[in-house]
Design a binder for these strands. Structure first.
Lengths: 256, 256
DNA sequence: ATTGGTCAAGTGGTTTTACCAATTCAAGGC
DNA sequence: GCCTTGAATTGGTAAAACCACTTGACCAAT
């Protein structure tokens, strides 16, 4: 029995990621038509149903528009993400994280005060999903998003939910793409999970102040992890040179 | 020949809707496992690939969790019984005000800490403009907006500026239209101006806590003015009882 | 009785093949 | 010129088959 230990990532997600990056790279600008499903399948070496599954995922995300008999078209920033490119143009990842620090910290405090039991259960559920995905060796990006969103939902304020969702969408922006590798480390995800647990615990205990500081600490750590990733991905640092040193340096920075 | 005259909704969406309604009807509560894909396909009279496409859509939406070799499990207890599309729908004026209470309060505190002299001067300029417009008998709506925006700009965070601007744009929405008359009173504008002055003073003194509470007091007063206007307009909004304010949120913040 | 392993059934994952339905566009008829 | 029409293209759906993984029952060894 061969141990295909990893590669549990489902095919449709890989294909969707590939197409998404093609769109973001400018290969297919807004309004452009993608190659037919059959061509995409042949080019990527997969079957057409798999390509269809990926396209449906992208369609639900609001990235493409599938028109029967015509083709698949790239949607601009008109729907789905309201002011996505706008925010990103005006502010980098670090300003976004700072804004999240302010807003999501308050969301956590509010959630601790006014969350319903079922909403707390929903937060817990998102955390467990994240844990499960990590155990499977996947990047728990979706579960991470779900955790933050459900805390916002627990405030009972739709406007705050909308803002948190909008800020999170930025993570799919091009600026974050180059940092994905550096954020992929299991240790980093493990740290993020522990920070999530601290937030949930404070909310469960109805301790607003603790929830706020736990969430702010989480985003602060994310900021540090991000900073190290940014540095390591710097232009003047060839990856091929002294990979061991880079790895050690990265770890050292993260632990501070 | 079946007349798919208009809107031949794609099969996977119909199936997804059907499963979604089954989940929300309580047929499959949170944590329950759905029937196997093959059974679902047979029961619904469609093929398995179509069911898979629907499940992928629901998975992207965060409603279900697909586990290889095990089954499909229901995730959503946050939007199960109540408040489903409510989040997606427009959040009302009161939720928007509460969001502003949270965000702009922090903006004022941040501005007090890190605003440049020229940015403080810009805030002052907006305040003087508001005063001048009022003296001319105009509605200082533009100057009001400018005041809040420049405080956000003084934080130096583009993302926060964008959020404040976005929240302000909501004021042009239809819900606010019927309240214009009640907010037009010179006395009310005079009170708002005085509250603005208190905010600016705290920022000038570099007192973050005072700036936050001044801004929050301003928005709380706006909330009260709004509530009375709403009641006078004959609308029966359950959340907007006379005398209600943002006390709940205030407590949450002051506890820090 | 507990532990450990194997095995078989069930489940989702993927591919292949085939055909149906809608759109598109150009050739041909008015 | 405008309209019709039909073939080519494209997405939509179905069916069958095989693979990989999970689960739980069963059995053997401790």
């Amino acid at each position: 029995m061969p141990i295909h230990s990893i590669e549990p990532r489902r095919l449709y997600r890989q294909i969707a990621d590939q197409i998404r990056s093609l769109i973001r790279s400018g290969e297919f600008p807004a309004g452009a038509r993608l190659p037919p499903e059959r061509d995409l399948a042949r080019q990527m070496g997969v079957s057409r149903p798999s390509v269809r599954e990926a396209l449906i995922a992208l369609e639900v995300e609001g990235l493409v528009d599938v028109r029967i008999g015509s083709g698949i078209y790239v949607l601009g920033s008109s729907r789905g993400a309201k002011g996505r490119a706008e925010v990103e143009a005006a502010s980098g990842p670090f300003e976004l994280l700072r804004a999240r620090w302010v807003i999501e910290g308050e969301c956590a405090a509010l959630a601790a005060k006014s969350a319903h039991k079922t909403q707390i259960a929903a937060i817990e559920e998102a955390l467990e999903l994240m844990q499960r995905e990590m155990a499977d060796g996947q990047q728990p990006l979706g579960a991470d998003r779900l955790f933050h969103l459900r805390i916002a939902e627990a405030t009972g304020n739709g406007a705050l939910v909308h803002i948190v969702r909008m800020l999170w969408e930025e993570r799919t922006g091009p600026l974050y793409k180059q940092l994905e590798d550096h954020y992929d480390s299991p240790q980093l995800w493990e740290a993020a999970l522990a920070e999530h647990r601290a937030v949930l615990k404070a909310i469960t205990l109805r301790d607003g102040a603790a929830a706020r500081s736990a969430m702010q600490r989480h985003l602060n750590q994310a900021y540090k992890r991000f900073s190290s990733g940014w540095d390591a991905a710097g232009r003047d640092e060839p990856k091929a040179k002294s990979g061991a040193d880079l790895a050690k340096m990265r770890v050292a920075r993260i632990e501070l």
